[in-house]
Computed example of a mutant assay.
Amino acid sequence: MENKKDSLQNILDTGELVINVISEWFIEAANYTAINAPLGVSEFDLSGLTPLPSSKVKPPHVAESAFSIEAKLVSHHPWYSPTTGKNTGVTIFAEGVNFHIREDMWLEGNEGSIVDIAKLKPVSRLGGIMYGRTTEGHELPRPEFTIEKDKDEIKKVL
């Protein structure tokens, strides 16, 4: 990729990363980390976000994030435009090795503790300059094959 962000280059060079979930309360600061600053300029310094030492990887995690995942690079896949042949992006596959979840983010569920989406207020980057808010969630149990296989509509496809 021509304009590789420092974060991507650091992941490829070190094999380590931290995934910080963005929440509504710091979206503006998180968005500021997408600035097209020159190589070597700290996005932490520019955005005002606070770096905290990680336990199992060298990159710090973001103190303002209520949910962060320390991770190790498993592999990566570059993507190329079929029309121009230019590298347009890279997908990173990583294994979480340590999780940081703020105590006030937990919700007791039927299968143990889960993160309460209403408290976490996660924000996703959808592409370009578009972001999305997750305001609620719901649980949907997975189907059990030993039960489903006996239903007529499932028997037809088996």
Results as ranks from 00 to 15, higher is better:
M1R: 08
M1G: 06
E2I: 03
N3I: 01
K4T: 11
K4R: 15
K4H: 14
K5F: 02
D6N: 15
S7W: 13
S7Y: 11
S7I: 07
S7N: 15
L8H: 10
L8R: 10
N10F: 13
N10G: 12
L12T: 05
D13L: 04
D13G: 09
T14D: 05
E16A: 09
L17S: 12
L17H: 15
L17M: 15
L17W: 14
I19V: 04
S23V: 00
E24Q: 09
E24H: 03
W25Q: 12
W25A: 14
F26H: 11
F26L: 03
F26N: 02
I27G: 00
E28Y: 06
E28K: 08
A29Y: 05
N31G: 06
N31V: 00
T33W: 10
A34P: 08
I35Q: 14
I35W: 11
A37S: 07
P38K: 07
P38L: 01
L39R: 15
G40I: 06
S42P: 01
E43C: 01
E43V: 03
S47D: 09
G48A: 00
T50S: 05
T50V: 09
S54N: 08
S55G: 10
K56L: 10
K56Q: 14
V57G: 04
K58Y: 13
P60T: 01
P60C: 03
H61N: 14
V62R: 04
V62Y: 05
A63K: 15
E64H: 00
S65P: 02
S65G: 05
S65M: 01
I69C: 10
E70A: 08
E70L: 02
A71S: 11
K72Y: 11
S75D: 07
H77W: 08
H77N: 06
P78D: 12
P78F: 04
P78R: 07
P78M: 03
P78C: 02
Y80H: 01
Y80Q: 00
T83N: 06
T84S: 10
T84H: 00
K86A: 10
G89Y: 07
G89R: 00
V90P: 02
V90I: 13
F93N: 10
F93G: 11
F93Q: 10
A94K: 05
G96L: 06
G96T: 03
G96P: 04
N98K: 12
F99T: 11
H100R: 14
I101T: 09
I101W: 09
I101E: 12
I101H: 14
E103M: 04
D104N: 12
M105A: 15
M105W: 15
W106D: 13
L107Q: 15
G109L: 07
E111N: 02
G112D: 07
G112S: 04
I114E: 12
D116Q: 11
A118H: 14
A118G: 14
K121Q: 13
T134G: 10
T135Q: 08
T135Y: 03
E136D: 12
G137N: 11
H138T: 10
E139K: 15
E139C: 10
E139G: 09
L140Y: 12
L140H: 15
R142N: 03
R142I: 00
P143M: 03
E144H: 03
E144G: 00
F145S: 03
F145V: 01
T146F: 05
I147R: 15
K149P: 06
D150F: 08
E153T: 02
K155V: 01
L158K: 13
